[in-house]
């Protein structure tokens, strides 16, 4: 395996271990805005108006689920890249050296 590839392996690891999890963290934080039920806010017992609480909460729930799934996809993607980097590290000395350098730089 080439030296060039080894450098790339370090970048692959960094993408999977650092960059994509950061995006996952962003989505996890974004999810907070749609984590609280809207039913208590919008429901009423009298029947006045048109009770839209369940519909509002359904939309909120869909956004929350989409954010959850999108976050998981990004984290899974990161994990796959880390696995790939680790495998190359095991089979190629040059890649291992580059991998360790990159890892130490990040850590």
């Amino acid at each position: 395996m080439s030296e060039a590839l080894g450098v790339e392996v370090g970048r692959v690891w960094r993408a999977g271990a650092k960059k994509l999890p950061e995006v996952g963290d962003t989505l996890e934080t974004a999810k907070r805005g749609v984590s609280t039920s809207l039913v208590d806010l919008l429901s009423r017992s009298s029947g006045v108006g048109t009770d839209v609480s369940s519909r509002f909460d359904e939309l909120r729930g869909l956004i929350s689920r989409a954010l959850e799934d999108s976050e998981q996809a990004i984290r899974d993607c990161g994990t796959a890249l880390v696995w790939a980097a680790e495998d190359y590290e095991l089979t190629d000395q040059a890649a291992r050296d580059a991998y360790e350098r990159e890892k130490q730089r990040i850590d």
Binding site: A4, R11, C77
Partner: peptide
């Protein structure tokens, strides 16, 4: 909500053999 990429569905033990994964920088 885009489903996860096929990359993430590859088993841990087969990741290195995943088609095309090893081609960075033309190597």
């Amino acid at each position: 909500c885009q489903p996860p990429p096929t990359l993430t569905s590859v088993h841990r033990n087969h990741i290195a053999a995943y088609s095309g994964l090893g081609t960075w920088g033309g190597g």
